[in-house]
Nucleic acid binder design. Structure first.
Length: 414
DNA sequence: TAGACTGGCGCC
DNA sequence: AAACGGCGCCAGTCTA
C-alpha cells in the first residue's frame, strides 16, 4: 500500500520497462483457426453483397457511405417515413449503424447492410490483418504507450485493446487468442473502477454506501429511478461522459422528456455526486485545466469559448478527465506493483492490458499460487474511501473465460 | 500515387 | 452542425 502518492512522471518511468516486457512476450495467436474463419467470413460477405444488390436492383460500393446514402436516402427515400429523424454529418445524412437501426423494418436491405458492415469490419480489421503480424512463434507483439491527453495506455500495430467481444461473431475472433501449451490465460479486471473513482472523489454518501456494503450500483440506480437495469447502466456511465438528455434519448430510444426525467432522477438520487460534477467544471474554468488524482493536468481554454458547442465539449472533458485519468493511474500503479510481487515472473508473465483488465499467461501448476497474489496487489494498490474489487477469470483462450470464485474466508475451521 | 480527410466502428 | 469521454484502424474519397 502506498503511503504518499507518487508523481505521474515516476509512475510512467517505472511502467516503461514493464510495458517493454509485455510487448516482447506477446500473445499467442491461433493462425490456422483464424484462416478458416477468414474463408467463412469472406463467403458470408460475398453472399450478403449479392443479396444487397438484388434488393436494391443494381450494384454499388456498399462500404462507401456516400454511395450507400445515395441508395437508401436518394433512391429509396427511407428517411422520409413518419417519425424517422436521421442524424446529419458534414457531407449529408449519416449511414451509421445507429441511424440504420431507425430504418429497420422499412426495407429488407437495411438488415443486410448491418450484417454486411459487421462481417466486413471483423474481416478487414482483425481476421485478415492479424495473422500477417505474428512472429515465427505465432505470437503478436503490440506497442503500448501512455497517451498524452488521457494518461490511459494505448495499444497499436496492432491494437490489442479493441479485440471484439460484444457479438457472437466477434467472439469467434477473440477465441484465436490462446494460452500456449501448459499455460492458462488469467484475466484480472477492476470491477466498475470509474464508478468507484466517482464515489471516492465525490464522497457521495449513497454511492459510498453501495460500494462499502458490496452492493450493486446499477441496481441502486435502477431502483431509485424506477427504470430497467439497462437504462440505469446507461445513466450511470453517461453521467461521467457529461451526457445530454438528447444523447441519452438517442442511446435508449426513448423520448427526450423521458431521458430528462432519468437525468433529474439521477441528480436527485446522488446529489453530492451531482454537486461534484458542477464543481469539476467550475474549478477547471477558473484554473484553466482539469486534473487527475496524481495531478496530471489537461488544459481546457475552450471552457471560456463563446461558442456553446465548443464550450460544452470542453465541459464534458472537464468531467471525464479526472475520472478516466484517475482510473488509468490506479491501473498503472498495479502494473508496476504486480510484476514486483511476482518477482520471478517467468512462470506467469503479464501479457496484455485493456484499460481495466490485465491478462497473464500462467503456467498451470502456478495458478493457485499466483491468482490470489495478483488480486491482492491490484486491490491494495491504493486506499480509497471504498474498496477496489478485482474479478478473476481463467480460460484456454480469451473468449472462453470463466469466473474464478474469490477465496473464501475459512470460517468453518475445516 | 501518397497523404489527408471523413465516416464508420471495434474496445474500455 | 452536432448532440457521450478516451483510443486506433479500416475503406472510400479527395487533393496535391
Amino acid at each position: 500500500m502506498l503511503k504518499t502518492l507518487p508523481s505521474v512522471q515516476s509512475v510512467d518511468e517505472a511502467l516503461n520497462p514493464v510495458l517493454r516486457q509485455m510487448e516482447d512476450r506477446g500473445v499467442l495467436l491461433d493462425v490456422g483457426y483464424l484462416e478458416t474463419v477468414a474463408v467463412d467470413l469472406a463467403d458470408q460477405l460475398a453472399e450478403l453483397e449479392r443479396q444487397i444488390f438484388e434488393a436494391v436492383g443494381h450494384p454499388f460500393l456498399i462500404s462507401s457511405p456516400k454511395q450507400l446514402g445515395q441508395v437508401i436516402y436518394s433512391e429509396l427515400h427511407l428517411d422520409q417515413a413518419d417519425g424517422v429523424n436521421i442524424r446529419k454529418k458534414t457531407t449529408g445524412l449519416s449511414t451509421g449503424a445507429a441511424e440504420l437501426a431507425k430504418l429497420q423494418g422499412s426495407h429488407p436491405v437495411i438488415d443486410l447492410i448491418l450484417k454486411y458492415r459487421e462481417v466486413g469490419k471483423l474481416l478487414s480489421t482483425y481476421v485478415l490483418p492479424l495473422p500477417q503480424l505474428v512472429d515465427s512463434s505465432n505470437r503478436l507483439h503490440t506497442s503500448y504507450a501512455p497517451n498524452a491527453a488521457s494518461g490511459r495506455l494505448s495499444s497499436r500495430k496492432p491494437n490489442l485493446q479493441n479485440i471484439p467481444i460484444r457479438t457472437e461473431l466477434g467472439r469467434t475472433i477473440r477465441r484465436a487468442f490462446i494460452a500456449s501449451p501448459g499455460t492458462i490465460l488469467v484475466s484480472a479486471d477492476y470491477s466498475q473502477i470509474e464508478l468507484r473513482v466517482i464515489a471516492h472523489l465525490s464522497q457521495d454518501p449513497t454511492m459510498l454506501e453501495v460500494f462499502q456494503t458490496g452492493g450493486d450500483i446499477h441496481a441502486k440506480t435502477s431502483e431509485a429511478l424506477g427504470i430497467g437495469r439497462r437504462a440505469a447502466k446507461a445513466v450511470n456511465f453517461g453521467i461521467f461522459y457529461g451526457l445530454s438528455a438528447y444523447g441519452l434519448a438517442e442511446s435508449l430510444a426513448v423520448s427526450r422528456e423521458e431521458a430528462q426525467t432519468f437525468i433529474d432522477g439521477y441528480l436527485g438520487a446522488y446529489p453530492v455526486a451531482a454537486a461534484y460534477i458542477d464543481q469539476l467544471i467550475r474549478q477547471a474554468r477558473e484554473s484553466g485545466y482539469a486534473e487527475t488524482m496524481l495531478g496530471k493536468r489537461r488544459l481546457l481554454p475552450e471552457l471560456s469559448s463563446h461558442n456553446e458547442y465548443i464550450r460544452r465539449a470542453a465541459e464534458r472533458v472537464a468531467i471525464n478527465h479526472p475520472i478516466q485519468g484517475t482510473a488509468a493511474e490506479i491501473m498503472k500503479l498495479a502494473m508496476v506493483l504486480v510484476p514486483k510481487e511476482l518477482a520471478d515472473h517467468t512462470c506467469c508473465p503479464m501479457i496484455l492490458q485493456v484499460h481495466d483488465e490485465l491478462i497473464f499467461e500462467v503456467q498451470a501448476d502456478h495458478l493457485e499460487a499466483v491468482a490470489p497474489r495478483v488480486v491482492k496487489v491490484m486491490e491494495g494498490v491504493i486506499e480509497l474511501a471504498i474498496p477496489l474489487l478485482v474479478d478473476l477469470e481463467t480460460g484456454p483462450n480469451w473468449a472462453e473465460m470463466v469466473a474464478r470464485p474469490r477465496a473464501q474466508k475459512n470460517t468453518v475451521g475445516l
